[in-house]
């Protein structure tokens, strides 16, 4: 529970299939399983790190790069993992999230790239498709060489229905490239907290739909909020310009 602690990324030990381990359950992280996974991984990681240490010096080696090969790569960071997060970095949150292939990650895993993030839910028929469309517009407006340097994040508000599988189906239906897009679900509490940080207000309605703010947030490499677009179908030019400038 140390907010200033360096980035910790947690992988479930499952290396592969999208539905490993989390099938059918609401998106709540199984802490026991995760900690077991950490132990297993820790043992492996020590061996690997020792080896790397001999070969190259371990300072700049992100511990989870190899693990995320072939996965939606939210996590290819260039920064030394031990550098503390800045004071206003969202990445200080300890909360553990699950992506659409069932990996557990902390938000700190997104460090090192600019991120354009929004909160949504997959069953949303009104606003969210437009939010996602807006994110795609931003992606399309970027020059090719920048596209790989920017991540897009969607975090669900519907912690009950949006399981990793549901998110994965959404990714496929909406054709969100694995290399750029990260889809996450978390516990209700953590989701509320992230909403509070981003300024996204939301409320579940009787119908199971959510009333929610429409906000697109640009985070810098350190996870600090640099710019927000409120509303749907807004002008994206300012945000795109900020990304082009590399936001420092």
């Amino acid at each position: 529970m140390n907010h200033s602690s360096p980035w910790v990324g947690l992988d479930t030990q499952a290396p592969a299939s999208p539905d490993t381990g989390v099938g059918g359950f609401p998106c709540v992280v199984d802490v026991e399983r995760t900690s077991r996974a950490v132990l297993t991984r820790a043992r492996n990681a020590v061996a690997i790190l020792v080896a790397i240490g001999f070969l190259a010096g371990s300072c700049s080696t992100p511990p989870r790069e190899s693990a995320s090969a072939g996965k939606p790569s939210c996590c290819l960071t260039n920064l030394a993992p031990s550098a503390p997060f800045t004071d206003k970095s969202l990445y200080q949150l300890d909360s553990i999230w699950t992506n659409d292939v069932g990996q557990s990650i902390t938000l700190g895993a997104m460090r090192g790239r600019l991120q354009v993030v929004a909160m949504f839910f997959t069953r949303c028929t009104v606003a969210c498709p437009i939010i996602v469309h807006d994110l795609k517009r931003i992606e399309a407006a970027l020059p090719k060489d920048l596209q790989s340097k920017v991540g897009f994040g969607l975090v669900t508000l519907d912690t009950e229905h949006d399981t990793p599988e549901a998110l994965h189906r959404y990714r496929e239906a909406a054709q969100l490239a694995a290399a750029q897009w990260t889809l996450l679900c978390g516990t209700p509490d953590d989701t509320l907290e992230l909403g509070a940080l981003l300024g996204v207000k939301f409320k579940r309605e009787v119908s199971g739909q959510f009333a929610h703010s429409n906000l697109i947030t640009l985070l810098d490499e350190n996870g600090e909020i640099v710019y927000q677009i409120a509303g749907l179908n807004q002008d994206i030019q300012e945000l795109v310009t900020l990304i082009r400038r590399g936001v420092r």
């Binding site: 509320l192 509070a196 429409n214 906000l215 509303g231």
Partner: peptide
């Protein structure tokens, strides 16, 4: 309160 940010006022989706 835990869910203070469910009190919706601005920027909402549907005619709030």
């Amino acid at each position: 309160v835990a869910d203070f940010n469910t009190a919706m006022v601005t920027g909402d989706a549907r005619g709030d």
